[in-house]
């Protein structure tokens, strides 16, 4: 369970990205966070695995206060939270399987990590993760030979191989074409249902958000302005979130 309690975040340059955020997400939910660019979606997501620090309030994940974590404890905590990025963030010059195995690196002893020797169990888990996202046949191909959608699936497999309880996805479909975007969203939904992994994603495509997510959180200027089931989102609510700019945003 992720719990935000009166969370605020002010950047060192004085910009207030989050204000009075209260949010409770249960294990196994599929939450889409929508809002304008710069509204604080990305910041909200990145506070959960503490890629960003919060400056006010408390944030707990399964009862652990995130701001109390340091060094090794923080890295161990991050093992349970997978993260997906808009730009896939793969090492394109190595094979797909090596990219997936990266998520196993933090558990390796020093010398095995130095020489890149992975136990067979890890390799099989990596292959199974690739199978789950349907690109098992690309396992031994170099990552730069895959299409954008396939690369995002490799990133998803990398996260799955980590056996996370939560997956945070920062604009996972923003650089994909509409058809591929739907396929990737479908992958997320399946993983959410079959493996009971909590999924939080930032998304610009309102229609995709409403179609796939169970719950929608709307953010405007750092504040949560809507929090409820996707089925109950009306045009008025979208207008409120997007300050009347839904038309252009939804198309983009």
């Amino acid at each position: 369970m992720i719990e935000f309690n009166q969370v605020g975040k002010t950047y060192s340059n004085g910009f207030q990205a989050l204000k009075d955020v209260n949010l409770k997400i249960e294990q196994g939910e599929f939450v889409a966070i929508i809002g304008l660019s710069g509204a604080g979606k990305s910041t909200l997501l990145r506070t959960i695995n503490r890629m960003h620090d919060i400056t006010e309030g408390t944030l707990t994940v399964d009862g652990v206060n995130v701001m109390d974590l340091r060094g090794k404890a923080l890295r161990r905590f991050r093992r349970r939270i997978g993260m997906i990025f808009q730009s896939f963030n793969l090492v394109t010059r190595t094979r797909v399987i090596n990219n997936v195995l990266m998520s196993k690196v933090p558990d390796l002893p020093f010398f095995q990590a130095l020489f890149g020797i992975f136990p067979k169990k890890d390799k099989l888990e990596a292959l199974e993760a690739l199978d789950k996202v349907g690109i098992l046949d690309k396992a031994f191909v170099r990552a730069d030979q895959l299409s954008g959608g396939q690369q995002q699936r490799v990133a998803l497999a990398r996260t799955l191989a980590q056996n996370p309880q939560i997956i945070l996805a920062d604009e996972p479909v923003a650089s994909l074409d509409p058809v591929t975007a739907k396929q990737v969203m479908g992958d997320f939904l399946r993983i959410n249902k079959e493996m009971n992994i909590t999924i939080l994603l930032n998304i610009h495509h309102v229609d995709l958000a409403l179609q796939y997510a169970g719950r929608v959180v709307g953010i405007r200027a750092g504040r949560i302005v809507y929090d409820g089931p996707a089925t109950e989102v009306t045009q008025d609510i979208l207008d409120e979130i997007y300050e009347g700019k839904t038309e252009e945003e939804a198309v983009g």
């Binding site: 695995n49 990266m102 690196v105």
Partner: peptide, 22 residues
């Protein structure tokens, strides 16, 4: 490409592991 370091960070790698794999 330093964005890879960000994702290694997010999956809990330390500095040595980030250099070796990123």
């Amino acid at each position: 490409d330093t964005r890879i370091l960000e994702s290694l960070d997010a999956c809990g790698c330390n500095t040595f592991q980030k250099i070796r794999y990123g």
